[in-house]
Design a binder for these strands. Structure first.
Lengths: 360, 360
DNA sequence: CTGAAAGCGCTTACAG
DNA sequence: CTGAAAGCGCTTACAG
């Protein structure tokens, strides 16, 4: 592999000059003709600068850490692709680590990434209390959060409007005629779990509906979703629709309903959250709130690049819009067809049926 | 961040000595007591060696390129996790790139990885003819292939036994009573597409069955699977079972059958290949041939580490076993119940029904 | 067994 | 505008 010296020799200039000519930011310092000569020599030799050597000098590695719970959770691949597709053209490579929701493992892997001199981090694993991330931020390490926030400090974040999503889901089932609605909440130690639960309670109260049918899980998993629906059926029977904190929890509901031969949406309607890849393929295809996964990744990467390149600019955050995707897991409640008497206390809900779906 | 010099100062020795004491491979060169002192000083300072500086000297980056078609294809996340889980404890970090099956994009991204001085590559994108990989191999770059091979040269590869898998699938549907069996082949420019198609033809011939109901696709995609089933129905009607070259093609069959209201497995049984995550969740849950995805990743990473550390050892390959997973997409053919008269020409097929499934 | 020195391939003040 | 030089944090022949 040719080095700077080789290019310098061929162009008949000093290596320092080659360095300046090749870097677009310093090219202005060298006479245009000289720059031309250098560029041509570099081209002829197929010269590629060695980022390791550059990194040693500039104290940057041109890599960033991307911290996710688990790549095999279908939510993350599109986000990671979005990150890569922005980072790589920007000259940065992502270094991916999976924490398996294990704080110790996370600390260890993050330490190894710091040892590799990563120039910043994208975290998809934030808990409301997260000393590791808070400490990193305090040290001035560029950080961007995706999906979830910390309770403090204010870090640049790419999230979607959790509350608005829950309200959309709620309005959808209410429009179908449901009034007895249960909620399976994700863990309260995540900002998403907390925000979505709050939105459910407020939304139900606004509609004058009973918001006491709630079970909280302590992880975002299918297993927990299955257990949660079991608890709901036991403790708060009589509901005809259940909103799940995310798609994994919703799929867990499917598992239990399959075992107990409860029909979905015949007896109980289910709404998820996230629109993970493939939830359109399950039966019944899942009605859910869609996040722009890929875009979450691209925006996060863009934000991080900004933090790295202009560290003193005030940190920006991005709030992405979401949308209701109506599929097969929601329908009118059994027996009581949707009529005005079926939802006696509704105030403020739009009665306009969803245009993508035949009424009733 | 403390450097070697800091440790040396604290331990009262020369930086060279610190380097030797800290590296397990050279530790024997320094007096045990000195080594102890150095280790303690390093510990006290929280010293972490800088891999960038080391890499500059040793001409290794401790990174490897991992080249896949597209991370959002559910087949790859478990493989990538397997790779990471072996590489990272070994001190290496994977650098992931997505080619989108675009040779130009692949060449460009591989070049950027080489610029980053990766110490080796794992390719999941091999075509039978693949000059890029062949050239890299000729240069002596450590390479491991997963899933697919080149026609030459012999590179270390982690694959599963494609032919055996097809035979398992075939025997399964024959045991259910099918004799009119179609095949949707993946692209012939991949070793997997080629090997599986051959195995189907040979297997059918061995059973004395008609193996002419074949359509070849030019990509592994749902879309192509849907089109292929359409062609089969048009050109070779009358079959009661279809084996798909992989799960994506099988899911494409589902799409067409859903549109045309063809019942699966009522009218046509479908068998996939790969057991991608989530194909157990689709309806009907897909009967398929399961690959040990995660293990493919771990084995590939292990093989690559061997190639990097002992380049002159002869290259090894690994052939992983697969297994039939019977779910809901296969059943006895319609009308003709499985009886001896229904498969007049069977020779050599085991008639023992699959134990995991009630007969007929 | 340990020190002194050179050097990996770059970047960047400092002169001129 | 360009050259000469120092140095980023390591490793590793070479002495002693």
């Amino acid at each position: 592999m040719p080095t700077l010296r080789d290019v310098a020799a061929r162009a008949g200039v000093h290596p320092g000059t080659v360095s300046r000519a090749l870097n677009p930011e310093t090219r202005a310092l060298v006479k245009p003709q000289t720059a031309q000569r250098v560029l041509k020599a570099a081209e002829a030799l197929g010269y590629q600068p060695n980022p390791i050597a550059r990194g040693l000098k500039t104290n940057r590695s041109m890599t960033v850490g991307v911290v996710i719970p688990d790549l095999t959770n279908p939510l993350f691949p599109p986000i990671v692709r979005g990150i890569e597709d922005v980072l790589m053209p920007g000259g940065y490579s992502p270094l991916l680590i999976n924490t398996d929701n294990n704080a110790e493992r996370e600390a260890q892997l993050v330490a190894s990434l710091r040892g590799r001199q990563v120039d910043g981090f994208i975290f998809a694993t934030a808990r409301l209390k997260h000393p590791l991330i808070a400490d990193l931020a305090a040290e001035g390490v560029p950080i961007v959060l995706v999906n979830r926030r910390l309770d403090s400090p204010e870090l640049p974040t790419v999230t979607s409007d959790d509350a608005a999503g829950v309200v959309m889901a709620l309005r959808h089932v209410v429009d179908l005629g449901h009034t007895e609605i249960a909620y399976i909440s994700g863990p309260r130690w995540t900002s998403t779990g907390q925000a979505r639960l709050r939105a459910f309670k407020m939304g139900m109260a606004d509609l004058g509906l009973d918001s006491s049918r709630v079970v909280e899980t302590n992880m975002w998993s299918e297993q927990q979703g299955e257990e949660a629906l079991g608890k709901l059926l036991e403790r708060h029977p009589g509901f005809t629709a259940v909103l799940a904190g995310n798609d994994l929890l919703a799929l867990g509901c499917y598992d239990l309903m399959h075992k107990r031969a409860i029909s979905c949406p015949g007896e109980i309607s289910v709404v998820g959250f996230n629109d993970m890849p493939l939830v359109d393929k399950v039966r019944p295809a899942l009605t859910t709130i869609a996040l722009p996964h890929y875009q979450i990744g691209t925006e996060a990467a863009r934000l991080l690049l900004e933090r790295i390149r202009q560290p003193q600019d005030p940190p920006k955050s991005v709030l992405l819009p979401l949308s209701l995707v109506v599929r097969e897991s929601t329908a009118a409640p059994p027996a009581a067809a949707p009529s005005s008497s079926a939802h006696p206390t509704r105030k403020g809900a739009q009665t306009k049926p969803d245009p993508r779906r035949p009424a009733g």
